[in-house]
Write a protein that binds this DNA or RNA. Structure first.
Length: 598
RNA sequence: CGGGGCGUAGCACAGCCUGGUAGUGCGCUCGGUUUGGGACCGAGAGGUCGGAGGUUCGAAUCCUCUCGCCCCGACCA
């Protein structure tokens, strides 16, 4: 490929609306352009990279028995109504009508499509397991697209689904996918960790996220350097020191606390309490639906004063109260000020759970057994002290609700020396779920088992964002000059840069090397533009081709050219006659380092 | 959805407060010189100033509405 005729619109300056590194570099290096918020056009270089990532994924899926499908991006509403997700997905789903007024949506994911085929055509345990996947465009009308390719409204996803007859089969399928995912990330040059994750709207029993540590990420991962425990903070737990409460036999006592509104206020108030001896009381509302009916269920949440509520955990706990009699929780939100006063008879800042019976009370595990606590009295400007939780408060449900904090103890470590948790930002590059029977139940996907009995299919689902892998690779591999592409993902493996096209000998040598590399099957880009050396070198560095062969008049007089490794930034002089062979070797080595020897 | 910011040439921006011929740098085209880390000289092309309405003799500039984009939060397989 000749650069002079290849479309690579590089930019000298950072576009003003790009914030994260990968976004800036994708734009500057001429890989993408934005069409609308969260919607991007992939230019030729990006398309080459995306195809490479897709092929790595395809190879690894096929290696674990995956069969590639291709489902439509446009789905009839009925399919989603059946699974109950037509309403659950809310405004995140792009919806449209056909000419007859029929409802359709653009697919956010494809559980329904795959399950539909499965229920119509899988009849017997003898056909199982099945491992199905596709690489397809997904549409999600995200509330806030951001960070270039990291959160978009249209993207490519590899989604895989497994169907097994029993839990043991699912465990096996899940493990195979997990291993395939590890291979995929390794081959794409991504350092990753596998973490325990919340299943969220997907439902199901267990899930693992594949995370890449980067500040461009949107998730927080808590990890233990000692035992390797790692979990999304939406799910992570920790062990914390026990607080000494004394004997706590005294009866609860109301006392005036004028103008005390916050935990902080009460710490500083004469006769107040330390944060870890306070109970924080928060009113939330669970919103649920059944068919077209909606229902609000307010509830009270209790945490230790110095702890922060975790929304994902809270939502799960609330769902436990609400999801019954056909109701499904669709959201949990903080109660409005008026709602709080109507329910509690006091304003936020003076709330408490003592004596509360008309609202469900969900309490954080860290409060279990605590005594001598201070909390709001449900009378403005008054608090209660000497509160013993189990004696004075009617707790509907105990649950782990708090967000773990860096420096707390690891929940998994045993023995006298417990690891200390680290919390760091990470980007989710893949998520695998044990779904169980969530969709096979709602959509009636059943097969006969060996006893001739009809049982629901046991499902797993497994997703990877293809473009997000590209962006993550750039987040991880770049320097001030530009991208340092892992060779497996790079649009071209090597660029040949004659530094002066007007010098006949330079041009002839470059022509020769280019043609030999091409003949040898190397993915080579020939920078035959009549540009100055600085422009060519800067562009090659910016786009981040793994290797460069630089051909200039000075070194050519000694019969040498320069071989440059973009990742290590090492240059070495090599004889013209050996340049092609050295390039081939280095490319092979680099490929093997990532792909392993096949 | 709440908060903040920004829309002026392909890119980055100035001009707006205080209304009066639409500018600068880079990029682009042509000619010449130059050629190992984003050259130099000269001559050019390129603009519905996001859109609509209003005020005014006159609006990029003031007012109203509106659309879009970015960031923080909420939200989010």
């Amino acid at each position: 490929m000749r650069w002079s005729n290849y479309f690579i619109p590089t930019l000298r300056e950072d576009p003003s609306d790009a914030e994260v590194v990968s976004h800036k570099l994708l734009l500057r290096a001429g890989l993408i352009r934005q069409l609308a918020a969260g919607i991007y056009s992939y230019l030729p270089l990006a398309q080459r990279s995306v195809l490479k990532v897709s092929n790595i994924i395809r190879e690894e899926m096929n290696a674990v028995g995956g069969q590639e499908f291709f489902f439509p991006a446009i789905h009839p509403a009925e399919l989603w109504q059946e699974s109950g997700r037509w309403s659950v997905m809310g405004p995140n789903m792009f919806r449209l009508k056909d000419r007859k007024g029929g409802d359709y949506c653009l697919g956010m994911t494809h559980e329904e499509c795959f399950t539909d085929i499965a229920r119509n055509h899988l009849r017997s345990y003898k056909q199982l397991p099945q491992v199905w996947y596709q690489i397809q465009t997904k549409f999600r009308d995200e509330a806030r697209p951001k960070s270039g390719l990291l959160r978009t409204r249209q993207f490519t996803m590899k989604d895989a689904y497994t169907f097994d007859i029993d839990q043991a089969g699912l465990d096996k399928s899940f493990e195979a996918q997990r291993q395939a995912y590890c291979n995929i990330y390794k081959r794409c040059g991504l350092d990753f960790v596998i973490v325990d994750a919340d299943s969220g709207a997907m439902g199901g029993s267990a899930s693992n996220e594949f995370m890449v540590y980067t500040n461009a990420g949107e998730d927080m991962v808590a990890s233990c350097p000692k035992c390797g425990y790692a979990a999304n903070t939406e799910k992570a737990q920790s062990s914390i020191p026990v607080v000494d409460d004394g004997d706590g036999s005294e009866a609860a006592e109301k006392f005036p606390t004028p103008n005390v509104r916050t935990i902080e206020d009460l710490i500083n108030f004469e006769g107040g309490a330390a944060a870890n001896k306070q109970i924080k009381s928060l009113v939330y509302v669970s919103v649920a639906e059944k068919g077209s009916e909606f229902k609000n269920t307010p509830f009270l949440t209790l945490l230790r004063g110095d702890h922060q509520v975790n929304d994902a955990k809270l939502s799960n706990a609330a769902a436990g109260l609400v999801n019954k009699d056909g109701w499904t929780q669709t959201a949990v939100r903080p109660a409005h000020a008026e709602e709080i006063f109507d329910l509690m008879g006091a304003h936020a800042g003076s709330l408490g759970a003592v004596g509360v019976t008309k609202l469900p009370v969900i309490a954080d595990e860290a409060l279990r057994g605590r005594r001598n606590m201070t909390t709001g009295a449900n009378v403005d400007d008054h608090h209660l002290r000497n509160v013993s939780i189990e004696r004075d408060i009617k707790v509907t449900a105990w649950s782990d609700l708090r967000t773990v904090v860096e420096g707390e103890g690891c929940p998994k470590c045993a023995g006298p020396e417990i690891g200390t948790l680290r919390v760091a930002k990470a980007l989710e590059v893949g998520h695998i779920f044990k779904l169980g029977t969530k969709y096979s139940d709602s959509m009636g996907a059943r097969v006969l088992n060996s006893d001739g009995k009809e049982v629901p299919l046991i499902m797993g689902c497994y997703g990877i964002g293809v473009e997000r892998i590209l962006a993550a690779a750039i987040e991880l591999h770049n320097d001030e000059a530009g991208i340092q592409f892992p060779i497996t993902v790079a649009p071209f493996q090597i660029v040949v840069s004659p530094l002066n096209m007007k010098d006949a000998e330079v041009k002839a040598t470059a022509d020769g090397i280019y043609s030999e590399l091409t003949k040898a099957g190397v993915e080579v880009l020939y920078d035959d533009r009549d540009e100055r050396a600085g422009v060519k070198l800067n562009d090659a560095d910016l786009v981040g081709f793994p290797f460069q062969i630089r051909i200039g008049p000075k070194k050519l007089k000694e019969g040498k050219v320069e071989f440059y490794d973009r990742a290590t930034r090492q240059a070495e002089d090599v004889l013209v006659a050996q340049a092609v062979e050295i390039a081939r070797q280095r490319i092979q080595q680099a490929l093997q380092a990532l792909n392993g020897v096949k």
